[in-house]
Structures are given as structure tokens and as C-alpha cells.
Design a protein around this nucleic acid. Structure first.
Lengths: 226, 226
DNA sequence: ACCGTTAACCCTTCATTAACGTTAATATTC
DNA sequence: GAATATTAACGTTAATGAAGGGTTAACGGT
């Protein structure tokens, strides 16, 4: 499991962030200032750090400096306030692996975390780089579906759909659920649109007969992989 | 290891710069004013100096004058604010090896550092001067892209962009990331500007069919090298 | 003059919608 | 209750339309 060191002095913000990250299957250690961060970091094994820039005693930059001395390979993300001057924010990008301006959507933070972890070749929960589906290999991040030497480029929606099917493989997927989860609603037209996609996916996967998308009339479908 | 003396009074900017340079395997000594710079410089062995022009107590130029007295052979780069005009002239008269206008892309500073160090025969052995891309050879320091006997001169931005693509070759590069990393923002116009550059790069690389820039609509692109 | 940006125009892509075919469930007729 | 007509659900392919991206040229700052 990916371990995150979160340094954030604001209690409310910190606790919310911690919860949110934990919902995404990260192990979060939350400290309230730089000193604590440093002491805990020495003999532990974090995969990535998230630092608030403005903290009492030791700010995020100083903290990051010292962190680099101790663990030079560890990537970090800064959380920075909105009002900061443009050039400073731009400058931030120089050293940090990423930065995020507060207030921000928690989703964005998770996305960037995943980006960085991908870059540093660490596996992340749920979103493995390459997924084996029968004799195919599915690379959601590259939007590719490979069979031997052949490589099928996938659109965004195809990628999302295949990933969804993979997550629910070999079990009944209710039409209604799939539509709501992938299309956002389950009206008639989305349903027809989905049928078109399913039809296309069957083509993509037809070279491996152990992979089938079987539909159950009036209920949904099953993505079967033997 | 190459040692850099960095004189920069702004705390945030300085710390970021230090981090970034260290990430590129330079040893950075960061001082906050000219006096400190001078005293530390006397009996140490820096390969190059980077001075902010505007500093309290002693500005970058005055500092450079004194540095020349002590260590006449040491090269230096000035960091100067956007609006200054006279400064450039004065700096160049003094014999600055280069100057850079703030704010700037970090890549540029590193490229120029390498340029100067190469001139003074102190280029880091580890740093690649010439990068093979398919049948092309890419020389970021010379801003050249060579194919056999043909040689294509590159602009600064082209160079940075190719370098960026090279670093992220064969994997999905999100439009948003590329724009933020190379252009500094990801608004509509930067996007179009990028498209223009990508279009030009495709031309540059079209003689080797194993090199392609494939785009995935709505997501980004992949710099593929077989 | 150079180089990055913006504009303008065009072409391609992709999700959607439509159209038609097929299959299965239900209703109707006998 | 068997045969058949009807309707609903899904399969498949093609048409549609909006948006994204490709490309070239004009523009404007330095």
C-alpha cells in the first residue's frame, strides 16, 4: 500500500484530506508541522510527501529542503495558497514534483498523486499500469489494448468502459448501474449508446474466445474471462 | 560534482532554484547576499556563479566586479528582472557569461549552465550532450537536430519541447501536463501554440518512420520511438 | 530578422443518434 | 396449449454533428 506523509497545520483541512486519501486506499500519516514530519521521516518508508507551504515553525519549502537531504529520491507535492504571486507558483514547479493551489478539489490531488507515482514507477492501488485480460494486455494509462504485436488505440470512453468491466469481471453488471457509473444517467439514448460501445468491444476482444461479453436480457451483462 | 554558488535574496525563489539544480546533480551553495557570497568564495572552489542582480547590501553587478578580482577565471550568470534594460548591457560589459530574465523556465537555466560549463571544459561527464532519437541525433545544448548530414537548427522552445518529449517517450503525455510544464499554463491559446509546435516537430522527424507523435483526442499525445 | 503566438481554415475523430436486423418474451388467436 | 402475431430488448452498421486537432500564414514583440 502506498504511504503518504501529509504535513498540514490546519486541523479541519488536514483531517478531511486524510480521510479522503484513505478512501482512495492510501495509507496517510498526518503531521501538523515540519519538525514532526522530519523526525518521523527518518526511519520510515514513505512513497510520497504532501506539504502545506505555510506552516508555523518550519514552512513547506524549508521542510522539503531537509527532506531532500535525508531522502533525496522521495517525490513531493506542495499545497500553496491562492494569493501567492504567479512567479513564485511557477517557480514552485522547478523543485517540486507538483504543486496544488488551495482551495482545490480533492480529486485533483489524487490524480496528481497517481501521476507522480506513475512517473516514479511505484505501483498504485487499483490503477495498475498494465492489466492482463486473457491474452490481451490492457494499458489504461496509455489508452491501448494490445494483442501480441497488434495494438488497438482506445478512446477515453472505451478505456473507461473496459476498466469498469474489468473491475466487475465475471459478475453480473446491471445495465442501470453501468449506465449511471459510466454515462452518468440511464436514459434510453445512453443505453443505445452503450450498446454501440459494447458491440465495438466485442470486436476488439474477439481474438480471444475465452473473453466474452454476455448479456442477459432485461438485466445487464457479464464480462467473462476464463 | 559541479559546484554552483547561488546568490539570491528571495527566500522562496532561492530555495526552489537550489532544489531544482540539486535535482540535476549540481552541488549548490546558496547565499542570501553579496557579502556572504564573497566571504565564502575566497577559499572554496566553485565552478560557476549564479547571481541575482537585485540584492540588498551588494547588488549582483558589484558582486561580480569583486568576484572577478578574486577569481578572474570563474564564469557567472546573472538573474535579472524583466523590465531592466540597462542592466543587460552593464552585465555583459562586465563579462558575464550569460544572463537570464526572471521569471524563466527552469530548463533554460540548466541548458545555459551546461552551455557555459561546456565552454569552460567543465561539462559534467554524466550529462548527455547528444541524444539519439531513432536515426536522428538531438543536441539540446547546440539546439540542433541532425539526420545524417542534414542539420536542423532548433529554437529554444523547440529544444525544450523535444527534450520534454524525449523524457516522456513512449508513454501517454497528457495535454494538460505538457502545457503546464512547458508553457506554464494550459489555456486555449497555449494549447493552439503547442499544436503548432507539434506540427513542426512532426515535419522535423518525418524522415524516420519509426518516430511518431500520436495524439489521443481529448487526452494528450505519445512520442513513440520504436 | 527571428521566433513565439494568434488567426483562419480545413479535416478527422468520436460519441451520439438513427435505422434496420435479430432474438426473446408476451399477447392473441385458434 | 400450440401457432402466430406483436412488442420490447439488444446487436450491428451507418449517418450525423460538434469539437478537437492539423496545418499554414499572418502578426507582433524584441
Amino acid at each position: 500500500m502506498i504511504q503518504i506523509l501529509l504535513a498540514e497545520d490546519d486541523f479541519d483541512f488536514g483531517s478531511i484530506l486524510k480521510q479522503y486519501l484513505e478512501l482512495h486506499d492510501y495509507k496517510v500519516t498526518w503531521v501538523k508541522n515540519g519538525k514532526e514530519a522530519l523526525s518521523i521521516l527518518v526511519d520510515s518508508n514513505f512513497d510520497i510527501c504532501v506539504f502545506d507551504v505555510m506552516m508555523p515553525k518550519m514552512d513547506g519549502f524549508t521542510l522539503a529542503e531537509k527532506v531532500i537531504e535525508i531522502k533525496p529520491e522521495i517525490p513531493f507535492i506542495f499545497l500553496t495558497a491562492k494569493k501567492m504571486k504567479e512567479d513564485k507558483i511557477r517557480g514552485l514547479k522547478l523543485g517540486a514534483d507538483d504543486y496544488i493551489v488551495k482551495p482545490f478539489e480533492a480529486d485533483i490531488l489524487v490524480l496528481r498523486l497517481q501521476n507522480i507515482l506513475k512517473r516514479t514507477h511505484k505501483l498504485q492501488p487499483g490503477k495498475t499500469e498494465t492489466i492482463s485480460i486473457g491474452n490481451y494486455s490492457f494499458e489504461p494509462l496509455n489508452h491501448q489494448l494490445k494483442f501480441g504485436t497488434e495494438s488497438q488505440r482506445l478512446t477515453e470512453k472505451e478505456t473507461i468502459l473496459i476498466h469498469y468491466l474489468w473491475e466487475h469481471k465475471n459478475s453480473m453488471i446491471k445495465r442501470e448501474n453501468l449506465l449511471n457509473d459510466v454515462w452518468g444517467n440511464d436514459d434510453f439514448f445512453s443505453g443505445r449508446s452503450m450498446d454501440v460501445f459494447i458491440s465495438r468491444l466485442r470486436k476488439y476482444f474477439k481474438q480471444d474466445h475465452d473473453i466474452t461479453i454476455e448479456s442477459v436480457r432485461g438485466v445487464g451483462l457479464t464480462f467473462k474471462i476464463k
